[in-house]
């Protein structure tokens, strides 16, 4: 790659907040490092990964509305976690975490368990149990 070929395609989420160091050839054929704003194929790959995350969160959101899954399931997906990651953050057994993803079991949780989950998900326990809050979460990247 030559230095004038280093891509400068601005990524839609970072908007120049961060630039990658790239190695490229200068006009004499010597390698030097230079900064790149981003590259389209890479941006698209990251974009696709996020799209998939939001698609899954949206599906869970509908299940929560229907009363099958708990808000915990929603925030777990939103944080791109799975039951085992959530289990290791909270110290709660994985099979129990799986259980708490269902509304039926979630409703009976003690305050201290809710606190643990909330801590791992970076919200408060009150926010975690507030099912209305789920509707207000926007599944899009801020500009």
């Amino acid at each position: 790659m030559k230095i004038d070929e280093v891509p400068q395609d601005e990524a839609y989420m970072i908007k120049g907040k961060i630039r990658d160091v790239c190695y490229a050839l200068d006009k004499d054929g010597h390698y030097t490092s230079t900064l790149s704003m981003g590259w389209k194929p890479k941006n698209e790959a990251i974009g696709l990964a996020w799209e998939e995350v939001y698609h899954r969160v949206e599906e869970v959101r509908q299940q929560v509305q229907a009363g099958r899954l708990s808000p915990l399931a929603f925030y777990m997906e939103l944080n791109i976690m799975n039951p085992s990651i959530l289990a290791s953050y909270t110290g709660i057994h994985r099979w129990k975490v799986r259980r708490h993803l269902k509304m039926k079991y979630f409703l009976n949780l003690k305050q201290e368990v809710l606190e643990k989950y909330a801590g791992a998900l970076n919200i408060t326990a009150a926010e975690l149990v507030d099912t209305k809050r789920i509707q207000t979460v926007v599944l899009k990247h801020e500009d």
């Binding site: 961060i18 990658d20 790239c22 490229a24 490092s33 790959a45 990251i46």
Partner: peptide, 28 residues
């Protein structure tokens, strides 16, 4: 399949490879 392919591209290009999965750094 598309998601898997996108993941390979992210490993190849996402932050910190200096382009083309470290191949350019090694050339340097």
């Amino acid at each position: 399949a598309a998601l898997n392919l996108a993941q390979v591209i992210r490993m190849l290009e996402e932050i910190g490879t200096g382009g083309a999965g470290f191949r350019f750094i090694y050339a340097a």
